[in-house]
Each structure stands twice: as C-alpha cells, then as structure tokens.
Design a protein around this nucleic acid. Structure first.
Lengths: 195, 195
DNA sequence: CGTATCATGTAAGGGGTTACATGATTCT
DNA sequence: AGAATCATGTAACCCCTTACATGATACG
C-alpha cells in the first residue's frame, strides 16, 4: 500500500487527523502524490487495525471532535522496513500525451487548446513550487535532516514541472509556426504570465 | 477508459492483435503509458462489444491463429469525441519521492542505494529514447502529420527522463559530498556510463 | 431555524497487478 | 514425447474515483 506508507511518513513528521492529512497532501507532501479524504479514512482504519497507528479523540472548543493519529512502535518498524525494500519503478501515465499522439484522428484545434490549458496549469504549479522554495528554504546549503529531504523532493517537483513546461512550449511552437493561421482564432495567448 | 482510448489510437495507426499491442506498448507508444496483455485482452473484448472494433481471425502458417482488431466507424467517432473532450490533469505519483522524503525514518544508506538504482534506470531509458529519436527521426524539421506527433511525444519522454536524471544526480551529489565516507561502502559508482 | 462549514465516514464501480490456466505450434 | 514459445484468456485482489450519507458546530 504505497499511499499507506506515504501516510506513515506524514504522520511520523506530525500526528494528524484525516482532514489534516488531506490538506497536507494538497500542499507540501503532494508534489509527487495526492489523496482524497475518503481514501485516507479507509487506510487510517486499516492501519489502526494492524497496530501501526494510535488514535486519540481530541475535543475542540469551536469545532467538531477530531481523531488524531500517531505512529506506534510497530508502525515505525513497518515504515523502516518498507523504506529499505526495493522500490518498483515509477510509471508515468499521461492522458495528455496519448491525445497529442492521436491528434491526427481528432480535432487538431481542440487538442491544441488542451495543450494550452495544460501548459497554463503546469506553469502555475511551477510558479507555486518556486514560491514555496524561496519562502521555506531560502538557504538550501544550510539544510540538514528532515528539512533537507523535504527540500530535495521539492526540487524534484520543480524540475519535473519545468520539463513539462518546456515540452508543451516546444510542442506549441512547432504547431503555431507550422499552421500560421491568417485569421487567428486561437483561444488564448501563450505569452501571458503564469498565474 | 484512458487505456481503451490509447488502444483506439494504436489501432487507428495499425490494426493489431492483443500480443502485438502489448509489444507496441513496450516500445513506441509506451513513453507515457504501459499495459499488460491481461488488461489489453479485457478491454479489446469490451470495446468489440460496444461496436468500436472489428475482429477477424488470422491463421498463421507457423504460429497459432491470432485475432486482429481494427477500428470501426463507430470507434473512430468515439475516439474523435474523446480527443476533443476536456483532459483531466495528469497526476504523477512517485514511490521513490515518498521514500526520499521519509529517509529520516529509515536506513539512509539503503535509500541512497535505491536512488542510485533509479538513476541508472532513468539513464538507460533516456539513452534508449535518444537512440530512437536519432534512428527514426533524423530530420525532425521535415516531419508532418502522424510522424510529427509521434516525434513530439517522444521529445516529451526525453525531456521527462532528463529531468529525472538531473534530479537524482543533484540528490546524490548533495549526500555524497555531505556524508563523505572515510571507508567507502558505496554499492555502485555514479560516474559509470548508462547501459 | 435554515444554511454553511467541519469532520468523519459508506458504497459502487472503474482500473490495474499478479497469479494462474489453456490450447497451438515449433524445436530437439 | 517433452520443452519452449506463441497467443489468448480467467480470477482474485488492491487501489482509486465518484457519489452519497451523517452528525456537529458556527453564522445570520
């Protein structure tokens, strides 16, 4: 259960409730993973049943009671073992690449629009990651331990988003210069700033 | 069904049997997707039931009979519509990134070994992609239509693998210079050539 | 008191992985 | 005949997505 072990990592850093974990996956942990609260609740239940987690209910003055999970000694041992086990190669599946590949069999203009939307999305994510890097890790050389690991994974996110932006920029350059429409009916302008 | 439509793209390019498709996914189509023959057979059956595919048995002189599938008019229409429908954003999930992030809670040396294995893997894939680009598309500027699309998707694969290689190289540089072991017990040498 | 938000869940179905099964053909 | 390969498939299980459900607290 890859997500389960990702949750063990997150809970080792900071005991949290299900909602807290979902929020954290939207942010710092989510450069290379994501999860909905439905998945998270199910896995928290399974992992508690296995004895990997402790659960304590925490009453809040102005909000509903929440359940805060923390990693047990058994959970820490399990995580340690998983971290040392051989990693299956990560597979990157891209619906967008499938569409670009099959553009001959569809509507070329519609697919160019999809590529433009995706490029805007990747640009926004890249800008967000770079903002986080500057804000949270202004002096990377001084980092050690957990913070250094977090920074290096964020660097991976930045490099990946950069590659995706470069790819789609190259792609759109080819088709913009090749088609060279006399009356431009482009849906958006690629030269705009990222959001 | 994302894989189903990827199969429609593949079969639009070239009618094939299940085994042929599995082989093609291992090669050119598989820069951004993959599939086992078990998945493929199941989907071929479903898509034939929907009328998207025609199936004809082809007897072979020196091998067992195989079923060759081709796209019907209904299948072509379905593919055309899918290609124009809004694309959900592609999510990149990485077990390796999760492990690097959680290295504090495991065996640092084992995780460095995992990173080295992954780097060798990415280097090999990058070298393979670059070989294919040179062999199959020696003059990219002259390409049009289907071949141009195939080349541009291959470019995406190259840019992605390059980013992954850069990332892990940076990662290992940090920890190699930081740890600076007096008696080196490294499992492999990072300076070796890609396979 | 009705609405919005917080927090926790259940259920159905699609998609993917792994292990296993079956028949045909070629090679030794 | 026995082993290897080709080609097609079944079944079990895990993971993820989507839609729906429930109760508690705050706001107007």
């Amino acid at each position: 259960m890859p997500l389960g072990h990702a949750l063990l990592v997150a809970l080792s850093e900071q005991p949290s409730s299900g909602v807290d974990l979902a929020k954290r996956f939207d942010k710092s942990i989510g450069y290379f993973w994501n999860a909905t609260h439905q998945q998270i609740y199910k896995l928290l239940g399974q992992m508690e049943a296995k004895g990997w987690l402790d659960c304590t209910e925490v009453a809040q003055s102005d909000r509903p009671t929440k359940k805060v999970y923390s990693v047990t000694a058994a959970g820490a041992a399990e995580l340690h073992e998983w971290l040392s086990a051989p990693t299956p190669p990560d597979l990157y599946r891209s619906v967008l690449a499938t569409k670009l590949r099959g553009a001959t069999f569809g509507d070329r203009q519609a697919i160019l629009g999809e590529a433009e939307n995706a490029l805007a999305d990747y640009r926004a994510r890249l800008a967000h990651f770079e903002f986080l890097a500057k804000r949270d890790y202004p002096e990377p050389e001084a980092l050690t331990g957990l913070e250094l690991d977090q920074y290096l994974v964020l660097r991976g996110g930045i490099l990946m988003q950069t590659a995706l932006v470069d790819w789609l920029t190259e792609y759109l350059d080819v088709y913009d210069t090749a088609t060279d429409l006399p009356t431009s009916d482009r849906t958006s302008d690629r030269t705009e700033d990222p959001a």
